[in-house]
Design a protein around this nucleic acid. Sequence first.
DNA 1: AATTTCATGTAATTCGTTACATGATTCC
DNA 2: GGAATCATGTAACGAATTACATGAAATT
Lengths: 195, 195
Amino acid sequence: MSRRSGILEFAVLGLLRESPMHGYELRKRLNTSLGVFRAFSYGTLYPCLKSLVANGWLVEEAGSAPEDARAASMAGRRAKIVYRLTAEGKEHFEELLSHTGPDTWEDEHFAARFAFFGQTSRDVRMRVLEGRRSRLEERLEKMRASLARTRERLDDYTLELQRHGMESVEREVRWLNELIESERAGRDKRPGPDQ
Amino acid sequence: MSRRSGILEFAVLGLLRESPMHGYELRKRLNTSLGVFRAFSYGTLYPCLKSLVANGWLVEEAGSAPEDARAASMAGRRAKIVYRLTAEGKEHFEELLSHTGPDTWEDEHFAARFAFFGQTSRDVRMRVLEGRRSRLEERLEKMRASLARTRERLDDYTLELQRHGMESVEREVRWLNELIESERAGRDKRPGPDQ
DNA sequence: AATTTCATGTAATTCGTTACATGATTCC
DNA sequence: GGAATCATGTAACGAATTACATGAAATT
């Protein structure tokens, strides 16, 4: 069946696992609670929800309207449609959570995975974290190599852009190092009484 | 006239302004010299080149092959096609360079603009830099607000993700501050006798 | 009463990738 | 002579957006 974006599907399933919600609210939480996710539009979200229902992973329930949502819709009126995760949906999400493939270290994918770390076992967390780190280290290696090859021919601005880009990646690697360290030590919280 | 991606078009024009190139090399330089750009695929690049030719902004020239590239192509053989910026193309790029709209502060767009700062006048650079900064400050404000609203309901990992995200944005703002400062002082090593 | 925000959806369009197909050149 | 890399292109598909369309509920 049609369009299922992987990352959106994953995020929706993960959010609905905590509590049932309707589409509008779901969309807000993709930006706020999960902060890092970009704002998917309704044109993306609603068809995705329909598709998840068709897969049996979600069910539509009556919202705050007095009548049943679907019946009301058919009669011309519209009401909130609250989506709830089914047992199959839960199982499917569990499966997605335990899967750690190369795609998982991708920028956006990684953020989504991280946001649901609370629902994951430690060894999965470690695999995701370490995979992400080595992916970033590869990227860093390429940047260094290309910089070494072309340094002279570049003007100051291009150079500065590259320098800043590399520094950003290096910074994320250090962050991952701390997190991995922290996982190894068996702590969930970050060390340091700062804040 | 079909698909023209804005950012890819801009980058291609900018790279060809420095020197003529063929498609394959162009693609490499989109990743390396301009480091920050993502790797556009050939399926995107070649149709884009055709479209730019159709607009009269580029012309195809014979590559390293002894015969003319187009003639050779028609005869069944293929040779490198070197693209060169026309006078109209130059003019068009100049126009794109001087345009500073809200879209310009967008993540990828901004990186592309920055990569060609060397070809820009100082006041355009200032507008782009300052626009980018205020865009980031807005984003930061939203993040802070949403964090204040939902802090209690979030688990440690989600919190950590948001904290790191905000820190990244704050870091880029500091970077922009330095650059703007530097532009104001006029002491960035750029050759003053622009034009 | 009017406006804003909540709420759901569809159609057309944009932007870009993957997979495929072809062939030249360079290196071992 | 076989592999890797260089080089160009097309067709099918994918992911997501925008613009449109509708209407209910809350706020001013």
